[in-house]
């Protein structure tokens, strides 16, 4: 074995196929996006090199509205970490204790993750419909007629779009955390109980530290997923009305395929990649610091 590792040619030969595949799938598109972001190009005509003009325009143009889109994505990330993950953790802790019907609940909470996003989008469109939607019907039935409204209008569309996004992936994070909780040796819990620890203390001082790597992964997924969020917003509002629900991904699609600004679309794509990497590193560092503390 030692001889095998000492042969650099063998190592290179074995690593090369996977490395090539990895480079082609991951690095080549990033590099190409970065390259195209330096051009004024409609996707099929002549390419004009303009340097960092696309980046300048992206951050200064009101007609593009990138900062608002980025703000919406960051707000979604904040809500994901502040609302979605605690909810998922609560459910995972409840189910992780081995309650009756554990598997059934697990499946039920995970169902939204399995359903097609388009189906979920259509479902919530019906829920929000101001004429026959179940939300307004419910409010009317309990005498809160004054709260009924057009849910996907400019004022409430952002919140109304975030609700199904957060709802859909609670089950996903719950499953990750549940798997982590289940991997904590049962002896730890039993030992703590013998020492007189209460349920909250066991969760706080035993379970959570043990599943910290899972929490880190969940946080990274929640934040980067929010930055990249696209499908449900596209189905529900397509970024409207008046860009109220615009996120970088919907803006990117609009630039690439509606406004024929391939260079600008590539700029947004490249920035999204950078942002996702940056947030993944920051979150990783934050968890690492705490582990070290």
């Amino acid at each position: 074995m030692k001889k095998l590792y000492s042969n650099k040619l063998t190592i290179i030969l074995f690593i090369l196929p996977a490395l090539l595949l990895f480079a082609l799938i991951l690095f080549a598109p990033i590099f190409v996006s970065g390259y195209y972001s330096l051009f004024d190009w409609n996707g099929f005509g002549k390419m004009n090199f303009i340097g960092i003009e696309n980046y300048k325009e992206l951050f200064t143009s009101n007609s593009i509205g990138f900062l608002k889109a980025l703000g919406n994505a960051l707000l979604l990330a904040l809500l994901s970490v502040g609302v979605q993950l605690p909810l998922a953790l609560g459910l995972a802790l409840l189910l992780g204790k081995g309650r009756k019907g554990e598997r059934a609940f697990l499946s039920i909470y995970f169902v939204p993750v399995l359903i097609s996003t388009v189906v979920i989008g259509q479902l919530w469109l019906k829920i929000y419909n101001s004429s026959y939607g179940i939300l307004n019907a419910f409010l009317r039935s309990i005498g809160l007629d004054n709260l009924t409204r057009i849910w996907l209008d400019r004022d409430t569309a952002l919140g109304a779009t975030f609700v199904p996004i957060l709802w859909q992936y609670v089950g996903y994070h719950m499953l990750l955390m549940y798997a982590g909780i289940k991997s904590v040796p049962v002896q730890y819990r039993e030992a703590a109980m013998i020492d007189g620890a209460k349920e909250g203390q066991i969760n706080r001082y035993i379970i959570l530290p043990c599943i910290k790597p899972i929490l880190k992964i969940s946080t990274i997924f929640a934040v980067t997923g929010s930055l990249k969020s696209f499908d449900l917003i596209y189905v529900l509002t397509n970024g409207g009305p008046l860009h109220a629900t615009e996120v970088p991904s919907t803006l990117m699609i609009s630039m690439l395929f509606l406004r024929n600004r391939y260079g600008m679309g590539s700029t947004i794509a490249f920035l999204l990649i950078i942002l996702c990497f940056a947030f993944a590193l920051i979150i990783g560092r934050m968890f690492k610091d705490k582990e070290e503390d």
């Binding site: 400019r154 409207g240 009305p241 008046l242 509606l258 406004r259």
Partner: peptide
Amino acid sequence: MAADNANIYLDYVSQIYSSV
């Protein structure tokens, strides 16, 4: 209108419809 201009135009039209 060309795609970019057409979409800028549509943006303004939707602002009008929403009385912004």
